[in-house]
Nucleic acid binder design. Structure first.
Lengths: 273, 273
DNA sequence: TATAAAGGTGAATCCGCAC
DNA sequence: AGTGCGGATTCACCTTTAT
């Protein structure tokens, strides 16, 4: 068993390759997985290597190879996550078009049942500078259940009657939560300890966790990055296990976790819903 | 060569299996393809057969078989569409989570380059009756180019400076068109000649056609249904070829096309942008 | 002290130009 | 013909200044 890189109360971090760490975790163990997998080789011509972005543009043959290799990778980690999920457990996957189609198709092939796809709309997205495309201003989240049969957690009333509409122009008060959410990308205040390229806003993870888990549940993030998932889990009295291959990001996670005590003094960030 | 089921001016319909009709069309011929492919066997437990929906629920083995068969089908029609597209041509694919991940991944494997994914948000979507999921209120559209190299058409200024904001709460006037569009589902007036299960609003197709084609361009819809694509193409002086395997839907298409003359008297439907 | 206006900064991609 | 650099593009944020 891998030794934890950091453990405090209900917040645990493992340093290492996600497939290797996952193999050592017990099966039927987690209530929910949130995963923001890396893009790898395909499409963008970049891969994440030792914390730096390295060009791997080797022409069309390699690009198509990259797509297939990405897909194999997604199949592998999705299978491992399925093993460690409880039968009634669910998984969230986030991504842009570079990765989400391979992920979503792999998810279906591995046997998960998709429950919803959710669109995170970013009202404050950056403009498109090339002026030859639409301005990318959303990410896709897929929510799926391990087993086609089991009964998943969905906190319908909290989603419906919470005060989400105060920050989300698309949520109508007292109406059902829909599949498109308007949430700003993180502002400077949320990034004060350092930057992670795909850092999610805490408001997004809070909504996900409140919707699909209960107090005391155990949540896993196999590509934890700066651990926004872990912070939201901790705030709502869930337990958390995060994995990342980059020590740099785990150190950033720890700084953010230790700062939660400061956040506690700001009631707005801890508003229940 | 298949004989056209209907042809008038720039509006042509073929009756038959889309793969067979596509095989008879010349290569490097079309400027744009819009496709709303069927779900087939997987996931929903339904298949479209002779105009009726037939249950094909045969348990898990068949479900997984269905996913793979769907994928093979998507690979086939996407390859055929690639052949008939001009090098600088683009393709739009629409779908919900049941089909869009298989389609998107097949698209990438076949060698298209994804340009954007667009979210069609439906402000007037139906509520979720089970109360165990988020309310599905969007569809996904993928926009991709045949060749990774060639230069595609994108009418940036029309998208940016058009009056879209009059009907779309997410479009800011004078700002770039973004990847999430708020457009209502078709009202009764748009369905007066009959119903098609996945009929799209004319406003959606008008935006797509104005964004990604020029006057006189040739547009193909291999699963044309009630031919909303064809109507929008005709209104904007593009040429159109539609294919469907259901005679019933082609007859509906013809009724709608012949009614365009009436629409012409209603300036609102013909507003340029 | 709060609100409003004004100016500088940064992000990603493509183009043309020089070599 | 490939490489590599600089410029252009847009819009939300952040900071500074003004009311």
């Amino acid at each position: 068993m891998n030794r934890a890189y950091y453990k405090k109360e209900r917040f645990t971090l493992y340093l290492g390759d996600c497939l290797e760490v996952l193999r050592d975790l017990p099966e039927n163990h987690f209530d929910m997985v949130f995963a923001d997998p890396p893009y790898h080789l395909s499409n963008g011509g970049f891969t994440c290597h030792a914390g730096r972005r390295v060009s791997v543009n080797k022409g069309k043959w390699d690009e198509s190879r990259g797509i297939e290799e990405d897909f194999e990778f997604h199949m592998r980690w999705l299978k491992e996550c399925k093993r460690v999920l409880k039968p009634e457990g669910t998984i969230w996957i986030s991504g842009t078009y570079h990765s989400i189609y391979a992920c979503g198709f792999a998810l279906q092939l591995v046997g998960y049942k998709i429950l919803n796809d959710i669109i995170w709309y970013k009202p404050n997205a950056s403009p498109n500078l090339s002026c030859r495309y639409f301005t990318a201003s959303h990410e896709t989240l897929i929510w799926a259940r391990k087993s086609p049969k089991a009964k998943h957690t969905f906190n319908y009333e909290i989603m419906k009657h919470g005060t989400w509409h105060r920050d989300d122009i698309l949520k109508k008060p007292g109406r059902q939560m829909r599949s498109v959410w308007a949430i700003d990308t993180p502002k400077a205040a949320e990034k004060k300890f350092g930057k992670h390229p795909t850092q999610k806003p805490i408001a997004l993870l809070k909504r996900i966790i409140l919707a699909s888990t209960n107090e005391g549940d155990l949540i896993l993030d196999p590509f934890t990055g700066s651990s926004t998932t872990g912070l939201a889990a901790y705030m709502y009295s869930r337990s958390f296990v995060g994995i990342d291959i980059e020590k740099e990001y785990l150190d950033l996670s720890i700084k953010r976790f230790q700062d939660i005590k400061n956040l506690e003094r700001k009631p707005k960030l801890f508003a229940r819903y």
